[in-house]
């Protein structure tokens, strides 16, 4: 993943961009889980959605919001 974003003097991605990437990965994973849960009509699918997808998207969004106020 290093090399796609802007680098600082040490050739590493800036901290905020790492945080954005982590948030994006979590949101993407949550959306994949949500999509999978919607292919199945069963109480377990609802649990997978609520706990799996809700958790991943929730942590992803919170991690994005945290990156807005984070200072290196």
């Amino acid at each position: 993943m290093i090399g796609l974003g802007e680098r600082n003097g040490n050739g590493r991605l800036r901290g905020i961009e790492w945080r954005l990437r982590i948030a994006a990965v979590l949101v993407l994973a949550g959306l994949v889980v949500e999509g999978a849960s919607l292919t199945w009509s069963h109480p377990t699918a609802f649990l997978v959605f609520a706990i799996g997808s809700g958790g991943l998207v929730g942590v992803g969004v919170l991690s994005y919001l945290h990156s807005l106020v984070w200072r290196p």
Binding site: L20, A23, A24, V27, G30, L31, E34, S37, L38, S41, H42, P43, A45, F46, F49, A50, S53, G54, V57, G58, G60, V61, Y64, L65
Partner: peptide, 28 residues
């Protein structure tokens, strides 16, 4: 990373709630 994920989560919740009203769902 905020607006669309929240919209997708809300949409998913709505879909699951609608599905949970189905007879097939209850008897599963």
């Amino acid at each position: 990373l905020f607006v669309f994920p929240m919209l997708a989560a809300f949409g998913g919740l709505n879909q699951h709630v609608e599905r949970s009203k189905k007879t097939v769902f209850c008897t599963s």
